[in-house]
């Protein structure tokens, strides 16, 4: 019994700095069983089996490691949790916008991670720790929900116009989400210093509420709301 097959069409951004002067879009076709749906990442892996020069990042293939963020038909997302059937053909794949391209779908995330590091994304509490755990009520812990789950895939920041224009100065939605994750943590004692570090006109206030970040976040997080909270805290602190 031969299975009915279908062809899926792709257009993929290709750029290898060793041989290409400028990037181009390359067409690919993949034949898969008619009835079978699959994640986009699986399809790209199959394309790579046919053309091993295609470069992209991938790791967990289940949407928790944040490796395979890319621009899929004009919208940032993770290839591993995007179903082929949800996409219009030809499926256009490009690297995340606004960051330098190293090769094909691989971008240089240096500036993204620098902005993350800038918010001091770690608990600060110089009181001597107790012998056991620091206590935190379920209500206090609940404030971290929707914040700590970030996977640093950069889908949000690279869909944000403010981040495109000022990647060195505007912290961007991913970094600000983490900034608020520590501001909101009842165990952290550096709230005032954290807020003072965010008072300039760029770090937080470049957010114009476009909400692309909320629209694309593969984990369903809401950086815009976190930024709003930071703004309220800044006003309350009277900076």
């Amino acid at each position: 019994m031969s299975e009915a097959m279908r062809t899926v069409k792709f257009k993929i951004y290709r750029f290898n700095p060793e041989v290409d002067i400028k990037p181009s879009m390359k067409d690919y076709e993949l034949t898969i069983p008619d009835k079978q749906d699959m994640m986009l990442l699986e399809a790209i892996l199959r394309i790579k089996a046919l053309d091993d020069s295609l470069a992209f990042r991938r790791s967990c293939r289940e949407g928790v490691c944040g490796s395979d963020g890319m621009n899929i038909n004009g919208r940032n997302g993770l290839a591993c949790v995007t179903l082929l059937s949800s996409l219009k053909q030809p499926i256009e794949l490009r690297p995340l916008p606004g960051l330098p391209v190293i090769r094909d779908l691989v971008v240089d995330m240096k500036v993204f991670f620098e902005q993350y590091a800038k918010v001091k994304p770690y608990l600060i509490n110089n009181d001597p720790p107790p012998a056991k755990e620091r206590l935190q009520s379920p209500a206090e812990r609940k404030k971290l929900d929707g914040l700590y789950e970030c996977i640093l895939c950069a889908c949000c920041s690279t869909s944000c116009p403010s981040f495109w224009w000022n990647p060195e100065k505007f912290i961007g939605p991913a970094g600000l989400l983490q900034a608020y994750r520590f501001i909101a943590d009842s165990r952290d004692t550096a709230k005032v210093e954290r807020l003072e570090g965010l008072t300039d006109p760029f770090s937080v206030f470049r957010c114009r509420g476009v909400m692309n970040c909320v629209e694309v976040c593969p984990k369903g997080l809401n950086p815009t709301r976190a930024i709003g909270h930071i703004r309220s805290e800044l006003l309350a602190e009277g900076n």
Binding site: K169, E196, G197, L198, T199, D200, P201, F202, S203, V204, F205, R231, L234, L235, N239
Partner: peptide, 14 residues
Amino acid sequence: MVKSATSLTGNGVR
């Protein structure tokens, strides 16, 4: 903290 001499108040909140 990003420095900016030319903004209105030099402070994002203000």
